[in-house]
Design a protein around this nucleic acid. Sequence first.
DNA 1: GACGATGACTTATCACTGATAACTCACTCC
DNA 2: GGAGTGAGTTATCAGTGATAAGTCATCGTC
Lengths: 220, 220
Amino acid sequence: MTAVRESAAKSRPRSRRGEGETLREDLLAATEELMIKTGSADAVSIRAIADAVGVTPPSIYLHFADKSSLILAVCERHFEVFDSIIEEAGRSTGDPVESLRRRGRAYVRFGLENPEPYRILFMTRAEGARQYDVLVGAGGRAFQHLVDAVQRCIDAGAFRPVDAVLAATGVWTAVHGVTSLLISLPGFPWPDVDALVDHVCDIEIRGLNEPVPELQGGAS
Amino acid sequence: MTAVRESAAKSRPRSRRGEGETLREDLLAATEELMIKTGSADAVSIRAIADAVGVTPPSIYLHFADKSSLILAVCERHFEVFDSIIEEAGRSTGDPVESLRRRGRAYVRFGLENPEPYRILFMTRAEGARQYDVLVGAGGRAFQHLVDAVQRCIDAGAFRPVDAVLAATGVWTAVHGVTSLLISLPGFPWPDVDALVDHVCDIEIRGLNEPVPELQGGAS
DNA sequence: GACGATGACTTATCACTGATAACTCACTCC
DNA sequence: GGAGTGAGTTATCAGTGATAAGTCATCGTC
């Protein structure tokens, strides 16, 4: 019987000396493909990955410490793209407030288009090394980009002079809230997604708005 | 060797006729305890649960279809309490806006105090039966309670006359965003949690505020 | 050009997981 | 007192992540 699983490569030629890295790349690619196909990281097994690449399970451990390291490596690749896409969306306009809104839209869209990496990066408990790596590395940079974007709104006088880090954290949690619930509960009777995202951005922007000083009976 | 695992009850007396439900209750209690102790539903195994109760693994399947049904049953119990705690917090004041703020605080606090049930209910992909049960049942009621709370703010003239369902959805995603990120990334350099939650509530409330009609130069 | 070293991988196996089929036991009711 | 059944057990399965130890080809060296 020997179920053929699905791989094309029944067995792959052993890499030459010094070319071990090629297997590592192939493993990442195969894992990503399987994750997208199955829609869940738990659903892809070490054996399935090994089969897809045409190699035996233990050889995976020559390149990754364990399964979660492999999965995380795949997700971190997405994260780099994540940050750059958001930055690009933010740079597509000169108005800082509109820029922030576009960042928010891009964030949600990316999360919905890459639900499993998003889930792994932001919706599962991070511990130890992973926490440090992701948060201090690419994650830290991405968050700083958001803080800067908020600061620009403050500097432009569009937002009250709040603590930019606190405000940025609030913005992040807001867009994450929509993204993550849409991913987790696809069966909930959600309003139109675009309308919801726009509403969330509206609330955030209005909430951080400089209020017109009407209470003091300002002049002119 | 036979590792003793940890249970006290080495074996439990077989239930009498008609008392099968007692095992079901014991299973729920033991599972909840193990979930709290290990902090993760995956970390508690069918065998560990069976051991803790003093029974063999297959007997669990006489009371629950599979492991996830058992876990979900534990979480749904929490959900009932969740809703009632939020309702209670909301009723503790007459001011609808302050009431909404208290609901938000209670929501986040409950999530942080029961991270694993929260994770399972709101942070893992829900499918099929579970989706239907939780969303249409207790979840539907809880959400309706939130919509009502928002509507009261609108009726009181404290919020603009927005779509109450859309606004409630936004409020939910906002408090969920904080809760879920705090659970997932405990190592992130978060601001003070209370300050963050208050800030998120502030933004939401200000964002939904009735703007003083200064642009039209309103009368009186 | 034989030879030890080593990079790249395989074979065999472990401990564990959720789950099922088939059996046993004790009690109840007729 | 025997059939029926509720309540649980024994034995076992297929699959999981992971490891120890072996194989095999290639490289650098003498």
